[in-house]
Design a protein around this nucleic acid. Structure first.
Lengths: 281, 281
DNA sequence: TATGGATTGGAATTATTATTTCATATTGCT
DNA sequence: AGCAATATGAAATAATAATTCCAATCCATA
């Protein structure tokens, strides 16, 4: 075997993708099948796999040999190993990730840490979302003429995704940001028939809090996403959500906030569609 | 076969535990082994498993028969099925949630869907991150004078979080966006001593691709985060990462991309700190 | 369009693996 | 302790599956 044989699934996958275009037709066919149905490769027999993929068993072996394995059996081992690794349960994996991230010094540990933080946050929020608040928030936003989106600094990415999604859903919205320093003017256009989604986490960006105060004094209802009941944002809000994001290396995961924000956005879109349909009928 | 044959792993497990004490010595031995090492049963051969468990192959078959199977092979199927299910459970859950949301099963389903999409994406990326590429990307970015961050539309939130984090870490960076339409000028300042983090997913925003092309022609190395090897972004990149984000209701989760982006950012920060320390010493 | 090389299909062969069988050992019972 | 029933070990056998081989076909190139 003069060529290096991929011994883990990822390397194998990469190798296949690289060579994809230089492979003969039938071999390419089995290659595509293998990447699409890795489980079948792991469990099946050469004959059964070949039949499912619509080729001859010998082709399957040729495929394995092209990749540097000495036969189908050794190729199959890689696919089996993948299943073994993937197998461990979610919680186990999460625990393992955290452990690795903590002990490990290398860069891989940093990556694992961020993945673990994101997973933890998601885990957490899915258990504690208050459904009544969620429905209230949707109702409130669905009847707004314009939805203003307010977030600064670390929360800003969430706001920009909300704005993107609202735009896609054809819901009129305004991201409160202005390179020209015209935020105050922008805010002054908001009326009680509009609504605001405001996002801020400790340490609360003063600008965000101040703008939330002003806008709430204009009678515009606010839906807030923040991190505790002590949040200054909570006091201005008609509805507010508490999201506890885990952090790693000083940077907060945004995954739970993102999920909540997207759910709100899409739910509002749906409610509007339903309302529109009813009005027509 | 007068007794009911367990066809799923949990039932099998329970059955074994119930009968444990009424089993002959060697059979009990293999029973214990089976529950402790289910993966080995799934993949091994009768001979190899028997050897690991310290019994004869025939005992293994007798064990299977006692449980009502007609041989080792049918018992093994249950163990294999277990691996298949474990592995696909996330995708299935997501599919179920999508279906539920489709038929209008309430807003909670939408929220669950976004959480599941995010979890699936994280799960996926943590298994397939290519560590070599990761190290290459870190090295490349760590020695850049200025890191340019390039992403449009749905990827923009990631870019803005990267820019925020780089700023916090005191790493000089430039987000390529300009309300004044000065992107071209901004890009023209980039030199081969700088580097770019570019993020784009299908359908690739033309502006992002075009800017990536221009900037790579200026000799500025690009680290790309994208969704497939066919991505037009990949061809301009020195290093690229494939991130498969699950989507829900038409909106892609950003959780995996975010985790990767943050990991890159923080790792670059660390590498720079280490380098600085070394220079001093 | 003729020719050589590469690719493919399908059956024959070889290898591996499950199962059966039977002799031997162990256990439980009177 | 002695006997029968049960359990076990080891090798023979049967089944299944991987691999090889060769003829047929396809494809690129002159």
């Amino acid at each position: 075997m003069d060529e290096r044989v991929p011994r883990d699934f990822e390397t194998l996958r990469t190798t296949i993708l690289e060579r994809r275009h230089s492979l003969p037709k039938r071999i390419a066919q089995i290659a595509a099948y293998a990447l699409d149905n890795p489980d079948d490769i792991a469990f099946g027999t050469a004959a059964s796999i070949a039949a499912s993929a619509g080729v001859q068993p010998s082709t399957l072996i040729r495929f394995a040999q092209q990749l540097g394995f000495d036969g189908f059996t050794s190729l199959q081992l890689v696919f089996r190993e993948r299943l073994r690794e993937r197998n461990s349960s979610y919680d186990e994996r999460l625990a393992a990730l955290r452990a690795k991230a903590e002990e490990g010094a290398g860069h891989r540990a940093i990556f694992d840490g961020f993945v673990a933080a994101a997973s933890t946050s998601l885990n957490d929020i899915s258990g504690r979302l208050n459904e009544d608040h969620f429905e209230d928030a949707i109702a409130l936003l669905a009847k707004a003429e314009t939805i203003y989106v307010l977030a600064k600094r670390r929360s800003y990415p969430v706001a920009s995704y909300i704005a993107y999604a609202l735009g896609k859903l054809k819901i009129r919205n305004q991201l409160i940001e202005s390179a020209a320093g015209l935020n105050a003017e922008m805010i002054s256009f908001a009326s009680p028939r509009d609504a605001v989604i405001a996002i801020s986490f400790s340490p609360y960006a003063p600008a965000a809090i101040e703008e939330a105060r002003v806008i709430s004094e204009q009678g515009v209802p606010i839906v807030a996403i923040t991190d505790s009941s002590f949040s200054p944002l909570a006091q201005f809000a008609k509805v507010w959500f508490e999201v506890a994001e885990a952090d790693f290396a000083g940077f907060r995961s945004l995954s739970a906030t993102m999920a909540l924000a997207m759910a709100l956005t899409v739910a509002v879109g749906e409610k509007r569609r339903d309302a529109g349909r009813k009005r027509k009928a």
